[in-house]
Design a protein around this nucleic acid. Structure first.
Lengths: 210, 210
DNA sequence: AATAAGAAGTTGCACTTGCACCTTTTTATA
DNA sequence: TATAAAAAGGTGCAAGTGCAACTTCTTATT
């Protein structure tokens, strides 16, 4: 259910490609994706590889907005990519499928069952992304680092019901994700450790209060 | 294009209601909407009135997540409402149309052109909301109040291309939106005024640096 | 295996912010 | 139109945080 192509046969997939007039682009490691594919509104799907949506503010700070892997969906209307301050960078060899947004919304498409399947999948994926954005906002709304961390733990805990949280990225990335200074975050993590609320082993965080 | 029902005739609308087995609920001012309508996954559309999605954290602070007016769309998968910390409150007499999410995603629906029109509209609305969330994240990521304000001004300015920004809500709401202390925000607004970067008249903010 | 690059971890200091607590002004409601 | 409630505006102070500047540890890359 996490792939936009779930429920489509190989034949249907080819028909879909024809219908939408898709293009497939190849990128090497550390290439900028947007300048190649961007013409007005598009939706991109990562067929293979790994890319990051990165925001660069006017101080030159880079913030990872989103990680894109196999079947990851991005686009001017879906992700934060319709702004000059955003880049998408391939982190290794990456294939990207590009669909024109206008072609996607052509009502004529709706005659074809394979399109409707695809569109429904896309709808579901975007809803999932939406939830993830809301999760992040819930964290960012918190005013203190401690509260942000505890909210992050809370969200992860509710997903797995486990006391252990395995960071899917580095602590530096976590600091970026909750939008605080890395050193200040470490200081607060130390406080939480000292108060025996958490334990940290590599990227495993154990919630002792759960 | 902002209504989920754009492009549908009255007859088609009734067919759509039948197909999706919708329910319409009425709320008076300051009633909680979710307890009445919530059973698992739903999508709600405000037919008339005004409601707010509100988050209440463990300190009892209320944060307005979203304002919902005529044709406003919310739901467990679309908005932040699938969490016990969220409430939707009607701010005046309000009519809400409720659709079961599972029924919405029934592939059989796709045979009907009026459904496909509706679904396409919904897709577009959710994409718009997605953009709005990303805008807010861009603000919340900023570490300082000044930077948050300037980012907020920047986003509003890019939309209208005007030097004047008209706040769609109170300054208190703005403080909540950018997730900072109200007094601290006022202090920073004062600094910006003193430096002659902005002027404030009621809810009109003039950007003197543009 | 050597070197470089990045992540993890720590600390002092200055600046920023949240918070509590005011006053004044505006808006809503009996 | 009187009264209450909410918003706007302001200030001192303590606490929290960003930032710079390190060291140590781990992971890539030649």
């Amino acid at each position: 259910m996490n792939s936009p192509f779930t429920g489509l046969s190989r034949i249907q997939l080819n028909k879909l490609y024809d219908l939408l007039g898709v293009h497939i682009y190849h990128f090497n490691k550390n290439q900028e994706i947007l300048p190649t594919i961007k013409n007005e509104n598009i939706i991109g799907i990562i067929l293979e590889g790994h890319a990051q949506i990165i925001n660069i503010d006017y101080n030159g700070n880079e913030i990872i907005i989103e990680e894109l892997f196999h079947d990851g969906v991005f686009g001017s209307n879906i992700s934060s990519t319709n702004n000059e301050n955003y880049q998408i960078i391939s982190k290794r060899d990456t294939q990207v499928l590009v669909i024109d947004y206008e072609k996607l919304l052509n009502p004529m498409n709706l005659k074809y069952s394979y399109f409707n399947t695809f569109f429904r999948n896309l709808f579901d994926i975007i809803n999932t992304k939406f939830k993830e954005k809301n999760e992040r906002i819930r964290i960012l709304e918190k005013k203190q680092i401690r509260e942000k961390l505890l909210e992050y733990f809370e969200i992860q805990h509710k997903k797995s019901r486990l006391k252990n949280i395995y960071l899917p990225f580095t602590f530096k990335d976590l600091a970026d994700y909750i939008a605080v200074n890395r050193s200040a975050m470490f200081r607060e993590l130390k406080h939480l450790k000292d108060e025996r609320l958490i334990e940290i082993n590599d990227r495993k965080i154990t919630l002792l209060y759960k």
